[in-house]
Amino acid sequence: MDGTPGATAAETVLRVKDLKKHFPVHRGVLSRVVGHVFAVDGVSFEIHRGETLCLVGESGCGKSTVAKTVMRLQEPTAGTVELNGNDITKLGQEELRAHRREMQIVFQDPYSSLNPRMSAGAIVGEPLTNYGLAHGADLQARIAKLFERVGLRADAMAKYPHEFSGGQRQRLGIARALAVNPRLIVADEPVSALDVSVQAQVLNLLIDLQEEFRLAYLFVSHDLAVVEHIGHRIAVMYLGRIVELADNADLFGEPLHPYTEALLAAAPLPEPGAKRERLILQGDVPSPMKPPPGCHFHTRCPYAEARCKVETPKLEEVKPAHWVACHLRPRGGPFGPLKARAA
């Protein structure tokens, strides 16, 4: 296969190559462009049928922008997005419509993403109506089925969003996404706004639905515990780029990129007294308007060498199905612990 991370023989639903999204920054009365936010700066990955690829990383690293450009809710600056083998980046709105059915999005905020003036039934049925797939009694029956499938009572169809709890609203969003039988669901922080007990309901539901319909998920989250629970493969982003991509067990068992290592060490564990060697990163995340040269991470990396400041490391498959972008992690190893440099 070609050099796309995650490329295997399995049925590929989504293939993203060298995706870039740069936002111009305007200033002054003339709105001159004074720079760019390099929100997504060359991202490639694939997702297969029945698979969950998680995108993790800290606030502002470009996760939502990847999700939105994949859905073409935002136009990419460069790169391609193939859905079931068709490049959708250059399609016009009409042609895009047919492909949109195949991928649906679930948003983070169940409070603002549902139209408050539509009944819950109408919200869930809207995609069916839009695509002219059902009407009348058939439409009502299909909506009722969707309600049941996500664990809501069918008689709640007449209610309005404000009458539902956060978790129930997120179920409405999921039911709506399922309505047109998509193959891919892009879920941008679908449980981040929920209390843990409600989060558990939604995660369980997503896993059940995936098993039932062999759905592919692009699952965006900043919560490592959630990602470890739900992801088959994990991509870690830092300042617009993927720095590591591997199977769940490999990534959590043997993180190879220094940023991944720091991220795992920083997340507190629900285990009192768990003594861990804690690598605490110093400094703040740099501005995506002026990402550091070379490796974006070198300003905070305890292992950085001279070349890290000038040379951009490529995302390479350093061992089977484990991709890393770090000068200290060449193809074939060594993979042991790195040695911190004296500051």
Binding site: A225, E228, I230, F252, P270
Partner: peptide, 15 residues
């Protein structure tokens, strides 16, 4: 209800 990560890097409950 919390998905658990553990200090040893092994999950108690994978998916």
């Amino acid at each position: 209800s919390i998905p658990r990560r553990t200090a040893t890097g092994r999950r108690s409950n994978i998916r």
